[in-house]
Amino acid sequence: MKNAVVRLLTFIGGLFFLVEFLLPERAPAWLGGFANPLTPHLGVVTTFLVVVGTMAFLLGPINLTRGHLKAVWRRHKGWAQSAVFLLFLALGLLATALRDEAARGFATRVYDALFFGLLFAFGTTSMAILSFYLVSAAYRAFRVNNLDSGIMMASAVIVLLGQVPLGDWITYALPDTLQLRSLAQWITMVPNAAVQRAVLIGACGGAFATGLRHWLGIGTRR
């Protein structure tokens, strides 16, 4: 029974969005020129979705807090990091609740120190070192052990060199079509674009079929 109700609600919701999208904003004059009757209700239905989504908003952070509380309580490995997390969670919640921008009191200063002094600084620092980590991780992970990875490596080298002055310097004496810049452009615009579009078209078909399956409740019983 519960399953049937969920399926029915899913079907009605999907039908609303589908018909609203398929009907034109205004019908042609020979059909009476009436406006789309569902469009005025779109805002209400979308707000309903936001309300339902908000109900789940706290569940994730609650799970996170419970997990760390348990780690501290039972002295699991890494419990000190969990304690630091809980401390900063409490500090952040209190500072956000008590801060007053106009008065610039203690809570506001704590808030500024937490968000602009620590979080912002940590975020930009981790983003800055991330690029170096990505290069080193790619170096460790990538192995030229078959034809596919060899082709991938060769194209990557051509595209990388084609983007920098070194590539121009290496091949400036060659005819224009054989220069690394032209080869890089050709790889990007022809084989790469063609394959990307082909995969995208396949994925679009897959997304459409999956959407329809879920909407009609075919094979979604878990």
């Binding site: 078909g205 897959g206 075919i218 094979g219």
Partner: peptide
């Protein structure tokens, strides 16, 4: 990758009807 990702749900489903809809992805292509 690509369409295989969306096909996975139906591919793993015990419902033959769901598997049959995979053919529609080829028709769409």
């Amino acid at each position: 990758i690509g369409e295989e990702y969306y096909a996975a749900g139906a591919y793993l489903s015990a419902d033959p009807a769901a598997r049959a809809t995979l053919a529609s992805q080829d028709l769409i292509k």
